[in-house]
């Protein structure tokens, strides 16, 4: 085996892989052990591949893609059925039935997602203008639509935000729960996005009936809880751009 052939084989060798001719691979490996120049070349070759891989893995993924996937597709947990014999399957079925029963007991105690995760995902969703399921400037009509969709529909819109015309609404999913989104026109291209979900969906700091503000890149968010619902309002801009909706003056 000449050095050129050894390089070609070593270049394709990855730990734990099968597929290469074992005898030729072993010969190339032995050659690398006795040839420092070949060993140096191989180490650099591996380093080069790792560098290229690390560059490619940093290719940016569009903001909002994940939220679009999870909201655009109604994804129920998928049960993967191993190819067991019928007898084993029947025996397993009774165990599974008990497991399902047990899991349904556990449901109410499943931990809520953190507010930071919720905020991050909702903001990432609207970074790319979302498709609305219903466009209407009539808030009651939007609420009727949300009610029919069995999503949170009894919306407590901040008083000052009610002065603005709604644009439309849609329902999205977060961690298996419905979230209603209602968009309001603020003038020009600016929009305010109001997300409403069951208070159990996200963990909040205490009652948090007063808005809690947090920045998410170019977006400012306010979150609060009212009754059994959790609210998130976001606009592009600074804190003042949001505070005006909650001021009493």
């Amino acid at each position: 085996m000449d050095e050129r052939e050894a390089r070609a084989i070593l270049g394709m060798h990855r730990a734990g892989e099968t597929g290469l001719d074992e005898a030729r691979l072993q010969e190339a490996l032995r050659k690398a052990e006795t040839d420092p120049e070949l060993a140096r070349w191989w180490n650099e070759d591996k380093e080069l591949d790792l560098l290229i891989a690390s560059k490619l893995v940093h290719t940016p993924v569009p903001a909002g893609l994940k939220a679009r996937i999870t909201s655009g597709v109604e994804m129920q947990p998928s049960v993967v059925r191993p190819n067991w014999s019928r007898a084993i399957l029947l025996a397993a079925a009774s165990i599974v039935a008990l497991a399902v029963l047990f899991s349904s007991w556990r449901g109410p105690f499943q931990p809520a997602a953190s507010m930071a995760d919720y905020r991050d995902e909702m903001v990432s969703f609207i970074k790319v203008a979302p498709n609305l399921e219903l466009e209407s400037s009539d808030l009651e009509r939007l609420q009727d639509f949300l009610e029919k969709a069995e999503a949170p529909a009894r919306l407590s819109v901040p008083k000052k935000l009610r002065n603005y015309e709604p644009l439309g609404c849609r329902v999205l999913r977060f961690r298996g729960r419905d979230v209603s989104l209602v968009c309001f026109k603020l003038g020009g291209d600016k929009l305010a996005h109001l997300f409403v979900t069951d208070a159990k969906t996200v963990s909040t700091d205490g009652s948090a009936s007063d808005p809690v503000y947090a920045a998410e890149e170019d977006w400012m968010t306010a979150t609060w809880t009212e009754g059994d619902q959790s609210y998130l309002l976001t606009v592009k801009g600074d804190r003042a751009a949001l505070e005006k909706f909650f001021s009493n003056s």
Binding site: V79, V80, G176
Partner: peptide, 11 residues
């Protein structure tokens, strides 16, 4: 049976 969490799958 193994249940695959769809959100984990997406993540």
């Amino acid at each position: 049976m193994a249940e695959i969490d769809p959100e984990q799958l997406v993540e």
